[in-house]
Design a protein around this nucleic acid. Sequence first.
DNA 1: GTCTATACCCAGATAGAC
DNA 2: GTCTATCTGGGTATAGAC
Lengths: 195, 195
Amino acid sequence: MARTTGSHSDITGPRIRAAALRLFARHGFAAVSMRQIAAEVGVQAGALYNYIPDKQSLLFSLMQSHMEELLAARAAQDVPGDALARLEAFVRFHIRFHLERRDAVFIAYMELRNLSSENFAAVEALRRTYETTLEQVLQDGVTEGVFAIPDIRIAARAVIAMLNGINTWYRVGGPMPLDAVEAVYWDMVRKAVGG
Amino acid sequence: MARTTGSHSDITGPRIRAAALRLFARHGFAAVSMRQIAAEVGVQAGALYNYIPDKQSLLFSLMQSHMEELLAARAAQDVPGDALARLEAFVRFHIRFHLERRDAVFIAYMELRNLSSENFAAVEALRRTYETTLEQVLQDGVTEGVFAIPDIRIAARAVIAMLNGINTWYRVGGPMPLDAVEAVYWDMVRKAVGG
DNA sequence: GTCTATACCCAGATAGAC
DNA sequence: GTCTATCTGGGTATAGAC
């Protein structure tokens, strides 16, 4: 018979993170209480502090993990090749990765102002690194003569902003297959950079 | 000599709205207290309730006003003409309007989940109406044969998302003139729709 | 219309028993 | 590692004097 009290260190930690991710995404960091998170996990509020030093560290940890997973996945995905193919791969990767992690993506964009300045700087550095991986592809394409882009940095931001917009309206299981979404956005991105 | 207490109904109301707009944009709706707003205005918290029924009505009112001003400005700006010119006008209008009202724009996009379902529906309808004014231009351009767009609705959303991204990085008074920003984004939008 | 005072409730975080 | 109990502070909103 299961104990209702005792040691659960290896499962409670991840469950706290999962519950916080869901609740922060749904209601916002400031609107979610530690007691709500604890209730979702099935422990008392005080028990959370065996796993996290405070609420804000929990937020930062969630954002940092998300960004690091994003960067790792991006690094594994960006294989050598011509710039046009690499840009298409970026677009499709970005769409899929971000649709698979809506909660984390939502938090990463909406809760930046709830980070301390040091934590903000750390997350911002990771975000900037991701942006740079796209800039590199765009720059290579310009060098190869296949892209026509007046401002690389702005173009990278514009592409990412455009793709991030998908999360606000696309519903998995809806009428439009993911492949079709990718194709439509890839068409627009390709044209926008003159490819 | 100025009274420190008494009647100020015609100035206190707007000051409450201005303070709330600024504080909500900076710290988030849930993180801002009525006491903070009152302190910013220079009254006690209880006095706020002479002007607003509750905190959420204040948020809704700010968002609704913003969207209505946006729609009014858009209606005044969209003059007849060829689709390419109207699209350029939309892009330049959207950029300028949104950069001039960063706080309201930020709130309108970030605080939707803090609205009651009725209030959310009202704001969403206004947002959708704005989106439709862009769709109309895109549709006209396709009909005229000057645009090549696989999906009008997605294209409109993509353009708006791309342009909204400007607010996250552009700083008025920074190294880049507004004209240059408009030109770069117009170049990308024009190409993206095949114009 | 604004004030003071307060009702009522919940927040984050900690202490010490088990 | 989790519990119960609690500290301390602050939240929205209202009541009634001025």
